[in-house]
């Protein structure tokens, strides 16, 4: 037991250090861009997972990302607000939206919530398309300003190279992982996991289930909002076509691929799948088909995801001995 957790710590330390030093080894913008995508998509996937832990499937995570992106972009462009104010506000706006959507739907078992999130993903796209004056209609918001420079004494971070964006994404990612880890390790995590098993029992022990479910959903949306804000200012534009149902499906696939059992799962899933996505770029139009088959096969034959592979191998070896 103890040994296991030391191994874990060592792995986290090595991976973390490698990540921090990545820009030192490679300043190739292409590599850095993929690394940034992995960090940001991990944040989104972690948000889906924490809701999944409580027995609910959110297939509108891209919409929450979109609301964060649009809120942040619109505030920065129309009101000239600094990115550093828009960023947390984007998270808060996405979280408030999640609370509004979650309150009537998380009360009832699974089916309703997933259908409402399905509807949300389509409705949100239409809102952005329709509302020309604020969201720029079908072509979206163009010319979102990059983050303002940070001046720390003599050191100035200008956000004029991918390296700076990489470190910003890394900081956001670390905050997400930390909060998710503490959230799950605390009693809240235990309660969330108890709901899919016997919610009546938890409720008649005095647990107000809605509070925890809505909190988990809002937390996931908050980080999706942050991710969206980052994405909008990083690309300096965003459009309704960036935050579609298909994008949510991809995030969900990262979660399922990596494994839903732990925080490491969605991160590993994002890293592996995004890398694979780049390698398989020539077969782009077959991706949804491959994606569908992968979802079906993984859930059937490897419900623990990629993260369970070492354990499966260990079991297989042990059985032989």
């Amino acid at each position: 037991m103890k040994n296991n957790s030391t191994t874990k710590k060592v792995i986290i330390a090595i991976v973390g250090l490698a990540a921090i030093l990545l820009p030192v080894f490679s300043s190739d913008p292409y590599i850095l861009h993929i690394a940034i995508a992995i960090l940001i998509w991990s944040m989104l996937a972690l948000g889906i997972r924490i809701v999944l832990v409580s027995g609910h499937l959110n297939i509108a995570q891209a919409s929450f990302m979109g609301f964060g992106a649009y809120a942040s972009g619109a505030l920065a462009m129309k009101l000239g607000w600094s990115f550093w104010i828009c960023l947390p506000l984007a998270g808060v706006i996405a979280a408030i939206l999640a609370i509004i959507v979650g309150l009537p739907t998380l009360r009832i078992k699974g089916a309703y919530f997933v259908i409402i999130t399905l509807g949300l993903s389509e409705v949100s796209r239409r809102i952005w398309m329709m509302w020309d004056s604020l969201f720029g209609g079908p072509q979206g918001l163009l010319g979102i300003p990059p983050p303002d420079a940070i001046k720390l004494g003599g050191l100035a971070i200008m956000f004029n190279s991918k390296v700076h964006y990489f470190y910003l994404a890394f900081v956001l990612f670390v905050i997400t992982v930390f909060v998710m880890w503490r959230f799950e390790k605390s009693r809240t995590g235990l309660l969330l996991k108890s709901f899919p098993k016997a919610d009546m029992l938890a409720e008649s022990s005095g647990v107000y289930i809605m509070k925890y479910k809505v909190a988990a959903f809002a937390l996931g949306a908050f980080f999706a909002g942050l991710a969206g804000s980052f994405w909008a200012h990083y690309f300096t534009y965003c459009s309704p076509w960036d935050f579609t149902l298909m994008a949510s499906f991809y995030m969900l696939m990262y979660v399922v691929m990596g494994g839903t059992g732990s925080i490491a799962g969605p991160i590993v899933g994002s890293a592996v799948m995004l890398t694979l996505d780049e390698l398989l770029r020539p077969f782009k139009e077959y991706m949804p088909m491959i994606l569908g088959v992968i979802l079906i096969l993984v859930l059937r034959f490897m419900p623990g995801g990629i993260i369970s592979i070492p354990g499966l191998i260990r079991d297989a070896v042990m059985r032989k001995e």
């Binding site: 108890s194 098993k197 009546m200 029992l201 409720e203 008649s204 005095g206 647990v207």
Partner: peptide, 24 residues
Amino acid sequence: LKPHRVAAKGLVRTFQANVLFKDF
């Protein structure tokens, strides 16, 4: 009153079958 509020008043119940958090 909502079930969790009833419990908070000091009135709790058990369930008929083995309703437990089985993999806890």
